[in-house]
Amino acid sequence: MALKPIGNARDELADQENWPNIIGEARAVADALPDLLVEASHVASSVTAGWHGRRRAGPGESFWQFRPFNMGEPAKRIDWRRSARDDHLYVREREWEAAHTVWLWADLSRSMSFQSRLSNTSKRDRAIVLMLALADMLAYTGERIGLPGITRPFSDRRAAERLADALTHLGRPDAFPETAPIQRFSDVVLISDLLDPVEDVAAWIGQVAATGAKGHIVQVLDPIEETFPFDGRVEFHDPEAGIRLTTGKAEGWREAYQKRLERHRAEIRDTARRAGWTYVLHHTDRPPAEPLLVLHSSLTGSAETLAQGDI
């Protein structure tokens, strides 16, 4: 549940009852995208520095690059049109088709807009940055990327920009993506606070796992949702269901709340692990590069087994 204490201006966001309609929410996301796209590009660049992609020459249909002709090769490999431009002979290489499809999804539902005084960014903005940065990194390694139910898979070095453009036309901000387009041998990445009922999360994991795809989950939480540093009279508000709950002594609820949140987290983590999925817990006061390192390693197979924990 997203938390909003009353009587403490440092923690307050815009009143959720005054939230705009779905169109207004989409506009808010669109307005933030240019800055988030720049941030994602910087994050992706810092993570991929020094890495080598999976793209290489080999059998396939897509053009990859021109390279100089080597003596002893069959003359039929020469691309005469390209070679006619200067005094050298060139060979047209095709890309080795090792790329597979990676479906990405950032939860943009209302609870994701929460931001406390303990973090410089909202959960929604961090989820978008992680998704766009991951798209940039996967495009660098030549993978096909898509938003389930929104775009078809594509391979493009401008993948992050294309996904950002698709988000500007997103309708209802659903917490979970459609499973119909997901097929066997693909990967699915969900970035969400996962504060939905455990049964709903488990049902979605089961649907994706049944397709034969492999999943990767990043649970994004604001640090205040973990520490529960509230005292006195506080009102808690669930922006998804519109439920309000007021307590006169919030400090008396701290221990029970933290135990319930840990139990909720553990159930989701265990469900993901039973399905053979990657699970990462990320807090918005931590650098976005941390979960990206785990995700990229899992997706590219650079590490068969990773310690899955809190980041």
Rank of each mutant, 00 (worst) to 15 (best):
A209V: 04
A209E: 12
A210T: 07
A213L: 00
A213Y: 00
K214Y: 01
G215A: 06
G215C: 06
H216W: 03
I217Q: 00
V218R: 02
V218D: 01
Q219R: 07
L221N: 00
L221S: 00
D222A: 02
P223G: 09
P223R: 02
P223E: 05
I224N: 03
E225T: 01
E225Y: 04
E225H: 03
E225N: 06
E225F: 02
E226Q: 15
E226R: 05
E226H: 05
T227K: 13
T227G: 08
T227F: 08
D231A: 15
V234R: 03
V234G: 00
V234D: 05
F236D: 05
H237V: 13
H237W: 13
D238R: 12
D238W: 12
P239N: 10
E240M: 11
A241L: 15
A241W: 12
G242C: 07
G242T: 12
I243G: 08
R244W: 12
L245Y: 10
L245M: 15
G248N: 03
K249S: 12
E251Y: 08
G252F: 04
R254K: 15
R254Q: 02
E255H: 11
Y257H: 08
Y257I: 09
K259N: 12
K259L: 13
K259E: 07
R260S: 15
H264P: 06
H264V: 10
A266W: 10
R269C: 13
T271N: 05
A272I: 06
A272D: 13
A272C: 08
